[in-house]
């Protein structure tokens, strides 16, 4: 029994054995919000500023950048990001060059293209909408060469 316990601890450790600083892939995420300003010409311009604080109705932009800092190409790169329950994904906002973008409506258990997902409520099945998505996943279609960078981005509105 004691041996079993220590095995469990070991397994748990192995999951977190690679913090982001470790020398394989450097992955960073930032959250920003749009601030609309009126320029000298009287036109509305929006710029992205740090989103430390937000109010309901505000739109935030999550940007995930990743760089292969190892000597080897990284293969089968998949970025997965949850969408908090207080946030509503902005339809069509997910962006990721070279990635196939997929969504989950079941807490990240299964993923598919947005148009292929359905939700069953009270016995009736309907197409999934932006408010149903719990996770977004970017599946890179090609390997990430040593030294290469990638980006994944999406927007959401605070409910």
């Amino acid at each position: 029994m004691k041996r079993l316990m220590s095995m469990v601890v070991l397994l748990a450790l192995s999951v977190t054995a690679y913090p982001q600083e470790q020398g394989h892939l450097n992955v960073r995420t930032v959250v920003q919000k749009e601030q609309v300003k009126v320029n000298e010409k009287g036109e509305a311009e929006s710029e992205l500023v740090a989103a430390d604080t937000v109010v309901p109705g505000e739109r935030v932009v999550y940007t995930i950048t990743f760089q292969n800092i190892s000597e080897e190409p990284a293969e089968n790169v998949v970025i997965t990001n949850p969408i908090s329950g207080d946030l509503m994904y902005v339809d069509g906002s997910a962006f990721g060059p070279g990635s196939d973008i997929q969504f989950s409506v079941d807490g990240g258990l299964t993923f598919a293209k947005a148009t292929e997902l359905t939700v069953t409520e009270d016995g009736t099945t309907r197409s999934a909408g932006a408010g149903d998505f719990t996770h977004i996943r970017w599946v890179m279609q090609q390997e990430l060469a040593a030294g290469a960078q990638g980006v994944a981005r999406f927007s959401a509105v605070l409910e």
């Binding site: 999951v15 977190t16 982001q20 937000v54 109010v55 995930i64 970025i79 997965t80």
Partner: peptide, 28 residues
């Protein structure tokens, strides 16, 4: 509202999972 991205990839045939930093926004 905290957010952490996860990256899964294979390096020289070894599957690796990494977590990004965690961002935090506070609802005011």
């Amino acid at each position: 509202i905290q957010n952490t991205a996860t990256v899964d990839f294979d390096l020289a045939g070894t599957p690796i999972t990494l977590q990004s930093n965690t961002t935090t926004i506070t609802v005011v």
